[in-house]
C-alpha cells in the first residue's frame, strides 16, 4: 500500500541552556533530517530555541488516559512524601 502523507513528528525545543526540552507541536516530514529543518522553520522563527528534538509520533508510548486513577491516585494519600508534612519547632522550621 502506498503511503502518500509524510509521517508525523513531535517537536521538542530547548528554549535556552539550563532548561528542559519542551513539547511545542508537531510537523510532517519524510525523514529525520527534513523533520528537523521543518521544525526549525515552524517553531523557532524568533530565537525560541537553542536545540530541537524530533521524534516520530508513532514511536511515542503514552499512558492511557483511562488509567489515570490507578496510575496517579495512589500518590494522593502519601502526604509524608512532602516536606510540609513535618511540623518542626519554629527555630528550625526553615530546614
Amino acid at each position: 500500500m502506498e503511503r502518500k502523507e509524510w509521517p508525523l513528528w513531535e517537536v521538542f525545543v530547548r528554549s535556552r541552556n539550563g532548561l528542559d526540552h519542551k513539547h511545542c507541536g508537531s510537523v510532517h516530514a519524510p525523514d529525520a533530517k527534513l523533520a528537523l529543518q521543518v521544525a526549525r522553520d515552524v517553531y523557532t522563527r524568533r530565537q525560541e530555541g537553542v536545540s530541537i528534538w524530533v521524534v516520530q509520533a508513532d514511536h511515542i508510548v503514552a499512558s492511557d488516559p483511562d488509567a489515570k486513577p490507578e496510575l496517579f491516585d495512589p500518590a494522593e494519600d502519601k502526604i509524608y512524601r512532602h516536606p510540609t508534612f513535618y511540623q518542626l519547632p519554629d527555630e528550625v522550621n526553615h530546614m
Partner: peptide, 18 residues
Amino acid sequence: GHGLYLYAAAETLGVSRD
C-alpha cells in the same frame, strides 16, 4: 506557520492532514 500550528492541533483530534 500559524496554519501549520493549527493543522497540528486539529490532527490531535484524529483527522489527517490530507
